[in-house]
Design a protein around this nucleic acid. Structure first.
Lengths: 381, 381
DNA sequence: GCACTAAGTTCAAGCATTGAACGAATGAGG
DNA sequence: CCTCATTCGTTCAATGCTTGAACTTAGTGC
C-alpha cells in the first residue's frame, strides 16, 4: 500500500461523503462543500468524473438572490439502478431503486413457494427481474436478494419454512441466470436496512421486529446491520421467555415465537388471515383484541430481554406487527417499561414501520444502492 | 482536513500497526516489516521517534545464522505505565501494567464499601494508586477505573450494590485527586477486555460472563467491547428466563440473576462464602453440587438467549463462575446445545477464564495501555 | 454601466510511503 | 586473512490529493 494508494483511499472516502450528502438531498457544489466540510475546489474535482460518467447531472441554474446562481447536482434520472428481490413463503417480490432513493418499478406476486425447488424459485425470480428491468437502458448495479431464513456467505443455512432450499447457493445461481451481481441476505436484516437507508427513520440505533411465519429482528448498531459471526444474530423468535414453556420446532422450550408468532395470534383469534384479523380488530372483536394483547405481552418480554442485551433506544415494529400496532403497543410498552433496565430514565421508544409490505424488497434493493455509495469505485466499473 | 493531515493519519495508523505487532512479541525492524506488511524503510522511519522517546529499546544484536545480525526492538523496560483500579462491594484493587503487558505491581485489599461515601472510596483508591506508583519515575499513561454498575459518560448511572455512589462523576473526581487521566468503565466490560488485551484468549468474538453480586456479561464484537448507547448493554443478569418467575429488584420477574446469582447459589448450597462452597464441592457435597447444577441450568438458558441474539462462537466463564466451572459446565453446555440455533452445526465453545481475581483490574489497566497503542499520538505528549 | 455578491475554477505547496540502491555487519570457506 | 554470500538497516527521489488564496464567471440592484 503505497502513499499514492492511501491518497486514493482518501479520495474514495470523500467521494462517499459527497454521495451520502446527495442521497440526503441534491445540492450545488458550494452547498455540498458546506455540508461535507470539504472545499469548493475539492467538490469541483470530485464531481467532475461523476458528471462525466452519467452518475450525476447538473440542473439548470436556479435564480435565487444575489451572486452567481448555483447549479444544483443530483443523481442522474437515467443513472444506475439497483434491483431488490424477495423470496418468501407465499409471495415473490421485486423492486427497482435509483441511487436517489426513488422507487421505479415494483411487483408483488402471491405464490406458494413451500414445495418449490431452487430452480423453480430462481426461474420465477429471474423472470420478475427481467420484467421490471426490461426495456430500460440504465446500468444495473446488482441484485439484493431477501430470504426468510438464516443466510451466511451466500448460502442458505437454515430455512424452517422453505426447507427445500437449505444449502442452496441462491446468490451465485441467480447471478448466473441474470448476469448480475447478487447479494443474499436475511429478510429481517433487509427490513431493518430499509428503515435506515436511504432515509433514516429512527435517527440512531434501533431494532426492527417483524412477524411473518417466524419472528425476526434486524439489529442496527452504529448505523450498520449487525449480522453476527454466522448470520444467526437477532433471532428474537428463539429468545426464551418461559424456560419450561411450550416446545419449539427449534428444539428449545418457551421461545417467544410460540407465544407471539403470527400463526399463534391468528389461531387464538380464530382467524385464518391477517386481513381478516385486522377487520375483526377494527370491528371491536374482543377475542381478536385479547389474542393480540396476549401476544404483545410475550413479545414485550422478549424485546425487553433484547434491550437489556443490546441497549438500543428504539424498537420499530414492522410487517404484521405494524398492521397490529394499535392493538399491540400498550402491552409491549408496558413490558418494556417494567423490564428494561435503562427504561427508568429513558423510556424505550416504540414505533410502527411506515413501509408496509414492500419493506423487505426495498431493503434488498437498498443493500445494493448503499454498497454503491459506500464503495464509489463500483460506479466507475 | 488537509492532505497533509490525512497523511499524518496514515502514519499514526501505521504506528498503531507496528505497536500492535510489538505487543504480540518483540522483533527487529526487518521482522516487523515482514509481519506488518510495511517496508523496512518505513519501519526505520516509524521506530526512530519511538526509540528517541524512550517507548522502545533496541536490544543488542542477536547472533543467529548468516547475514547482518538483527537488533530486536521491544517496549522499554522503564517506559510508560498504565494503572488499573477496581472499586467493588467488598474489596479494592489496583495494578500497574506496562505496554508489553507485564504486570508490575498489584494490590487487592478487602474493604466493605457498601456504605462508604464517594470521598472515602476515592481517598482509598488514590492512596492505593500512590502506593503502587510511588518511587517510580516511569510516565503514567492514565488510570482505568472499574466499577460494579452501569457507567455512562464518566458517571455512575446504576449501582444496585453501591447505591451511595449513583450519580457521582468518579472519573473526574479521581482525576483531580491523582492528577491523572481517568477512564471509568463497568467491571463486566473490563473483565471481558482483559481476555482480549494484551493477549486474545478466544481468538475471535466472545462473551465473558461473571457473577459477583449480580451477573454481568461483557460482549466483544469485532474485537471491541460493545457497550450500547447508554452503557446498559450485556445486562445478562436481567435477561428473563421465566416471565412470571421470581420478582427481581429491578422490577421485572424471572431474571437470570434470581436463579444463577452467586448469592442464590450460596444460599441453596447452605454456604456463606465462595471458598467454602468450593471446598464442599471438592469434598463431594451433593447439596453444593446440586445448587451449582441448578444455577448452571438457569445460566445456560440465559446465555442461550444471548447467543441467539449476538451470535458469537465462544462464551468465557469468569469470576465465581470460573471457580465453579467444573461443576457448572455440563448444565450450561447442555442448555446451550439444546437452545442455541447455531449450535447444531457449530457447537458453542465454553471456556473457563484463567485470569482469576485480578481479571477486572487487569482489564482496567489494559483499557489504558490499549488506548495508548490505538492512539499512538498519546505516547508523544 | 458599475458595484456587489456568490459560485465555481485554477494552481502551487505540502508529506509519508515506497522500491531500489547502498552501506553495514556477520558467517562460511579457502 | 581475504572474499563471497547473506541479511539488516538507511538513504533518496518520486508520487498524488486536498487546500486556500487568487481568479473568473454569472447573476442582481441601482
Amino acid at each position: 500500500m503505497t502513499t499514492v494508494d492511501h491518497l486514493r483511499q482518501v479520495r474514495l472516502g470523500n467521494l462517499r461523503t459527497v454521495l451520502l450528502a446527495l442521497v440526503d438531498r441534491p445540492g450545488s457544489r458550494a452547498d455540498l462543500a458546506a455540508r461535507t466540510g470539504l472545499t469548493k475546489a475539492t467538490l469541483s474535482n470530485l464531481t467532475e468524473p461523476l458528471l462525466a460518467g452519467g452518475i450525476l447531472v447538473e440542473e439548470p441554474a436556479t435564480l435565487a438572490g444575489m451572486g452567481r446562481p448555483s447549479k444544483p447536482l443530483r443523481f442522474h434520472p437515467a443513472g444506475p439502478v439497483a434491483v431488490g428481490a424477495e423470496i418468501n413463503v407465499s409471495h415473490l417480490a421485486v423492486e427497482t431503486l435509483g441511487l436517489d432513493g426513488a422507487t421505479l418499478e415494483r411487483r408483488l406476486v402471491p405464490a406458494d413457494m413451500r414445495k418449490a425447488t431452487a430452480d423453480e424459485v430462481l426461474d420465477r425470480v429471474a423472470g420478475l427481474i427481467r420484467e421490471v428491468t426490461g426495456g430500460s437502458e440504465r446500468t444495473l448495479l446488482g441484485v439484493g436478494l431477501a430470504f426468510p431464513g438464516v443466510v451466511h456467505d451466500g448460502a442458505i443455512v437454515r430455512a424452517p419454512n422453505l426447507p427445500e432450499l437449505v444449502g442452496e447457493r441462491l446468490a451465485e445461481r441467480l447471478g448466473e441466470r441474470t448476469g448480475l451481481d447478487v447479494q443474499l441476505d436475511n429478510e429481517a436484516n433487509l427490513a431493518a436496512l430499509a428503515h435506515l437507508w436511504p432515509r433514516h427513520l429512527a435517527g440512531e440505533d434501533f431494532v426492527h421486529v417483524t412477524a411473518d411465519v417466524g419472528i425476526g429482528a434486524g439489529v442496527v448498531l452504529g448505523g450498520e446491520v449487525y449480522r453476527g459471526v454466522s448470520g444467526f444474530a437477532g433471532e428474537l423468535g428463539h429468545v426464551v421467555i418461559e424456560r419450561n414453556g411450550i416446545r419449539c420446532t427449534c428444539g428449545s422450550r418457551g421461545c417467544v415465537e410460540r407465544y407471539a408468532g403470527l400463526d399463534v395470534i391468528l389461531r387464538e383469534a380464530g382467524r385464518r388471515r391477517l386481513d381478516s384479523l385486522r377487520k375483526a380488530l377494527e370491528a371491536g372483536d374482543p377475542k381478536a383484541a385479547a389474542a393480540v394483547r396476549t401476544a404483545g405481552e410475550a413479545l414485550g418480554v422478549g424485546i425487553a430481554t433484547l434491550m437489556n442485551l443490546f441497549d438500543v433506544p428504539t424498537v420499530v415494529l414492522g410487517g404484521s406487527y405494524a398492521v397490529l400496532y394499535d392493538h399491540l403497543r400498550e402491552a409491549v410498552q408496558s413490558e418494556l417499561d417494567g423490564r428494561v433496565l435503562a427504561g427508568g430514565e429513558r423510556h424505550t421508544r416504540l414505533l410502527a414501520s411506515p413501509l408496509g409490505e414492500f419493506a423487505v424488497v426495498r431493503g434488498a434493493a437498498g443493500l445494493i444502492t448503499r454498497r454503491a455509495v459506500q464503495q464509489p469505485e463500483r460506479l466507475f466499473a
